[in-house]
Design a protein around this nucleic acid. Sequence first.
DNA 1: ATTTTTAACGAAAACGTTTTCGTGTTAATA
DNA 2: TATTAACACGAAAACGTTTTCGTTAAAAAT
Lengths: 357, 357
Amino acid sequence: MKKKITLKQIAKELDVSVSTVSKALSGSKEISEDTTQKIQAFAKLYNYKPNNIALSLKNRKTKTIGILIPEIVHHFFSTVIRGIERVANRRGYNVIVGLSNESFTKEIINMEMLANGSIDGFILSISKETLLKQDYHHFHATINQGMPIVMFDRVVDEVECDKVIVDDFIGAVKAVNKLIENNCKNVALITTMDYVSVGKLRTQGYLKAFEDHGMEANPNMILKIDDSLNVENHLELLEAEIAQFLKSNPSIDGLFAVNELYAVTAMKVAKKLGLKVPDDIQVIGFTDGVLSKHATPSLTTVSQHGQKMGEQAANLLIDRLEAEDAEGQQYFTNNDEKRDFIKLVIETEIIERESTK
Amino acid sequence: MKKKITLKQIAKELDVSVSTVSKALSGSKEISEDTTQKIQAFAKLYNYKPNNIALSLKNRKTKTIGILIPEIVHHFFSTVIRGIERVANRRGYNVIVGLSNESFTKEIINMEMLANGSIDGFILSISKETLLKQDYHHFHATINQGMPIVMFDRVVDEVECDKVIVDDFIGAVKAVNKLIENNCKNVALITTMDYVSVGKLRTQGYLKAFEDHGMEANPNMILKIDDSLNVENHLELLEAEIAQFLKSNPSIDGLFAVNELYAVTAMKVAKKLGLKVPDDIQVIGFTDGVLSKHATPSLTTVSQHGQKMGEQAANLLIDRLEAEDAEGQQYFTNNDEKRDFIKLVIETEIIERESTK
DNA sequence: ATTTTTAACGAAAACGTTTTCGTGTTAATA
DNA sequence: TATTAACACGAAAACGTTTTCGTTAAAAAT
């Protein structure tokens, strides 16, 4: 068991100083060719690699970025992570993951755990509980400590930072427009409670589409699901609620759901009620995940391009980190002139499949 | 923008030495009550938190564990991560994630990137390409450097380390047994190429079940999919292959697939061919993911308990890390008496749904 | 009154790097 | 020959901690 070798050990072994070894390895021409060769050979032989922690301490930057998301067993979030990891890796960064589990407290604990030097910046999506409480002090606190944050998907105006979101509003408009143009006379909506910002926006998009067509939305055609109780484990409840909804609104011939689970479940329920998809009822969901792709019939969805979101978020963060860097060199500044924060909007795209005509 | 405060700054501010501050904060009774109080108050006021990197360097351990998996947009792997994160967090560890993307090279790069001090140990699942190449030198190398590895799911005998796997073999046997006992006369198998160890084991389980029932397996009833080309993006190909398979074997009335995608796709194809599930053909998959749960009909599957695997893996790793620790204290040893490596087997469980009778 | 103990604190090393600034030797210049 | 320049290297500081070992002054014991 050969423990990793350090500069000091190389130095002792070769009877030179630590500084000489360091310089030789970085190819400084301060060191003679002979010694350089000797040292490099030795280092290669013992597979020397500089210790990351020591470098982090010295450089006061860790080259790792922290991801903080509500849940990882979730197609959308995992695609975002994949996107982040991709550009992070390409740009020489590592990625450390924290899970809030939709809990306010766990979000805070995780942030504090990571904010103490372990990472250079955050990429996060706010937990539902935090959204509900509207308590954002922990975000402000870490930003004030000089640690940049990039928020994605579930963002909030109260926090000043870079953001990357999907145009939930327009996406919803497009989806509902499509249904209306496909000759649906009664387009219903299945959505979440309003405190989840994205649910709210998608609902507004639904309403806007009606308005654009000079139609009036019927409140009875809107089903709000309370997903405070974990839906995944209470599928029957969800199904029952949707069945009830569909039965009491038999005229529904088009359906827009704010996530794919609702959409797929609705299709399932519709089929059980003897409705044909898409002949009797057309369905569009939001979030293009596995379910949409593999459902029967496969589901037309509004794609969020999670991976792209992740990539953009990572680029935003790293850009800012490296800008700070360069800046710090020049004038050691407390320039409080508010730097502009960027809000990137990723365009949605409707992926047409079998659940619409 | 208040940058994080350090011991040194506190010391200067309060006109004491750094050591005094450190001791006071840790409640050492070497320091008088007065000064302790003063220092603690000041520290709390400025929200002092020790710098993790500095601690890591000093203690020569980072309290973070590295996860290296082939893919993250994958229900099984993300449940495993969730499990790891759960116990890691509970036991005071962080989690850093690397993605190999099923690539041998990326696996190596990622390992090297993390092995240089960033983490205390690995939890990983081997990439397909590595499995194919059968080149495990990078695992041996990092183990030799004294960094423990725990492998899960895709493991390999050639590497000596802790492992946690699912009883793929028995799981498959159970599944096929169930089909046979449900009166299927011709149970088919859809599997992967043999180099993916789990696919191989599940195939063997299929064969064993036949043997147990005194039946002979028919090679024509086994479809081996070459998933070297990314199946997710070539769904039509997969469907075509399965359709061809089902058509040329019309007697099939039971089907076991080594993953849920194959199973769900097979159900889809079967339905298109006019077969009723489960009346004409019963289907069981492996891996209990979203697809299984939400397919219509919902899919009976062999559950792998990914979260549990993750939890166990994390516990194994941390146990070993902390054992090393305690040991290192006592005798500064190169005790090469081989420490026993543990291989945990997580029991599978058949989750019955609508695709079987 | 002298020695010993105790209390309260500080100096310095160590973890593994990089980098700045010397410093001594040799070679080139005046 | 005396001065300067170039070369090759080492010492030390710094990043932020913790911990060991002094050290000083006061309190206790002799």
